[in-house]
């Protein structure tokens, strides 16, 4: 119980800290709206020019809902672990983290959880409500929302594990920007966050099926929109199974890698 208390204390501290950035909340909301408008106009122009209503099985509405919610999930899940860790390594602060009476992985996870809770209520939920109201019934409201929460939680864990798998690379290379940009580029493209996977050419799409990235955006969104039979348990469980599989595999790999990397820590400066 004290373990849980310690963790929820971190969550609380995270909530307080991110609320204190009062202006940031407002600006972020505004900027996200502009960004969404950009996405809207781009795809509207694309669909208008194509002359057909349905491309690759997706209508303009489908595509928009998908992309807007993908952006919302992106904001929700965004972590700066690679940055944080490489900064901590360069400043030598990493030692302090390692001395804390909680494993670094757990500590990082729980200290981000406050921001996640905030982002969920301040960014994701409003976006979702706006999308539901505007599209009038394009998103089914029912048991799929509950399934989505489960899937989203798994997506969060997968995403965290991808970060934690990549971050220790900077222990070996002292590279910050490089590692981060490689991770970000790969995840954004191959997870279907910038273009729905349905639009990918056949070969690429099949390749992506076997990678962990779709567990972050594509699966939760499919579940939320109740596509591909995910509104029934028989359709849902395999999808959650895939997410769970990646959670386990990535966290095992991440743990092994981290343990190896910690031994290698070479701290800069005195």
């Amino acid at each position: 119980m004290t373990g849980l208390k310690k963790k929820t204390a971190l969550t609380r501290a995270g909530i307080i800290e991110s609320l204190q950035f009062r202006l940031s909340t407002a600006v972020m909301l505004f900027a996200n709206l502009i960004y969404l408008a950009l996405v809207y106009f781009l795809w509207k122009a694309i669909y208008d020019s194509s002359g057909v209503d349905v491309v690759n099985g997706m209508t303009f509405y489908d595509t928009m809902i998908y992309l807007i919610l993908a952006t919302a999930i992106f904001n929700l899940l965004e972590m700066f672990i690679v940055w944080d860790m490489s900064r901590a390594i360069q400043s030598g602060e990493i030692i302090m983290h390692l001395l804390k009476p909680m494993r670094y992985r757990l500590y990082t996870f729980w200290s981000y959880s406050g921001a996640h809770v905030n982002n969920f209520f301040l960014s994701f939920v409003p976006t979702f409500i706006v999308v539901v109201v505007i599209t009038k019934g394009a998103i089914p409201i029912g048991i799929n929302l509950l399934y989505f929460m489960v899937s989203l939680l798994l997506a969060l864990i997968v995403n965290f594990n991808i970060e934690m798998l990549v971050a220790p690379v900077c222990l070996y290379t002292q590279s910050t920007w490089g590692i981060n940009i490689v991770k970000e580029t790969v995840v954004l493209l191959l997870s279907g966050a910038s273009i729905p996977l349905a639009f990918f050419p056949e070969g690429l799409r099949q390749a992506v099926e076997y990678l962990p990235f779709r567990a972050v955006y594509d699966i939760p969104l499919t579940v939320l929109l109740a596509k591909n039979g995910t509104d029934s348990l028989s359709g849902l469980l395999p999808k959650l199974g895939i997410q769970l599989f990646w959670c386990v595999l990535l966290s095992v790999c991440g743990n092994l890698f981290w343990n190896h990397a910690v031994k290698k820590i070479t701290v800069n400066g005195g």
Binding site: I16, Q20, R22, T25
Partner: peptide
């Protein structure tokens, strides 16, 4: 002037 606790930081927002 920052206020204490969760409620305080919501106050600080405004």
């Amino acid at each position: 002037n920052r206020h204490e606790g969760l409620k305080g930081s919501i106050q600080d927002l405004f």
